[in-house]
Design a protein around this nucleic acid. Structure first.
Lengths: 203, 203
DNA sequence: GTCTATATTGTGATAGAC
DNA sequence: GTCTATCACAATATAGAC
């Protein structure tokens, strides 16, 4: 690494993140990334040999933002209900700060599913501990019987879906009022864990 | 690939549906659609003047499959719990038969949100009646207090999300076993409404 | 490192024979 | 209606001056 203008490189990555996450790989244009970074196309290729290489970095970062950070939380020793509250509210908060990540990752996942195999095996995603914890609470009679995988899927669904379906939800439920939708999502940091715990708690 | 019995126009639409739903508008190639339809590019343009026109038809059909069919159900006079069971299981069944629709529609929605304005206004999506029904049940003390929009969002999330996130869920929860995942989704036709009703029902 | 100019390949779309 | 051949342009990528 010789003397690189980190400023330019940062600008490129930031611009690429914006364009890729909003348009996807196929929809993104190197010209638009260059424009947003305030440089020209040639300089993009000077820093990153190809569109693929540039995308690789952006996708990796997005994938790491979306998947593993909070997944680690599932492995902790926290009591179940507390863990559910912590997981959902933190996850929603991450997406509030990165609203385009979910749609971006899910689209690229469905277009090129092979990619996840590489990435997932490179990071030890292991929900087994969390699933076992759920099963243990069921056996103890503390929560209602449920397939632990269904519970985890529901948790993820309620955290992620509003960001993937935002345009349509905002339109239907809030007549396109952006601030109202932002407040709605903010409220869900408490509403979602409450909903989940109500669903599984034994009286 | 395509049936010889079908006329050319049907073969084109079928091929376009496959390619567009799996690759999106930007990722789709007219060449690939032509190949899948067993014809050549020129003939595509003979039947549909442009890629846009062809996409229009496919997206419209997908959008109508995804959004309004079951939405009408929300307006019916059914009791709330029964309505929730009917809605969720029917919706999941639709996606079992059209697994690529959710990802396709949601992606195009986020890439081109303006499109929904046109389509949504052309069909009277009106969840108000359902939201009112929920509020009425809350007032009567039959279900727990909850923002009705949160409840509707959660319903949609749990129905749709597994199909959008299928590659990653199938990998993490089922070690890429397709049949196991199919069974999992089938089970959710009963598990999801049960989960929801448990979450809101007052004891 | 940054630019202008250009090469090179894609891809959507059309012309015209049959 | 269906084909082959080709156009026109857009987009990635490279060459080379400064």
């Amino acid at each position: 690494m010789a003397e690189k203008d980190l400023n330019t490189e940062q600008k490129i990555l930031e611009a690429a993140r914006l364009v890729f996450t909003q348009k996807g790989f196929e929809g993104a244009r190197m010209q638009e990334i260059a424009d947003k970074a305030g440089i020209n196309k040639a300089l993009l290729h000077y820093y990153y040999r190809s569109k693929d290489k540039l995308f690789e970095g952006v996708f990796r970062e997005a994938f790491f933002t979306m998947v593993p950070q909070v997944m680690d939380l599932l492995k902790s020793e926290m009591p179940l209900f507390e863990k559910i509250r912590f997981f959902t509210s933190n996850y929603i908060e991450i997406f509030i700060n990165n609203p385009f990540i979910p749609g971006f990752v899910l689209h690229e996942l469905s277009v090129n599913p092979k990619r996840i195999v590489d990435l997932l095996s490179n990071m030890g995603i292991q929900p087994a501990l969390f699933l076992d914890q759920i099963q243990a609470e069921i056996d103890k009679g503390i929560i209602k019987p449920i397939d632990p995988r269904n519970l985890l899927t529901n948790m993820l669904a309620m955290c992620i879906f509003p960001f993937v379906a935002r345009p349509i939800l905002q339109n239907i439920l809030f007549t396109n009022d952006e601030q109202a939708f932002a407040q709605f999502v903010e409220d869900r940091k408490k509403a979602v864990p409450e909903f989940i715990i109500n669903a599984i708690k034994n009286e």
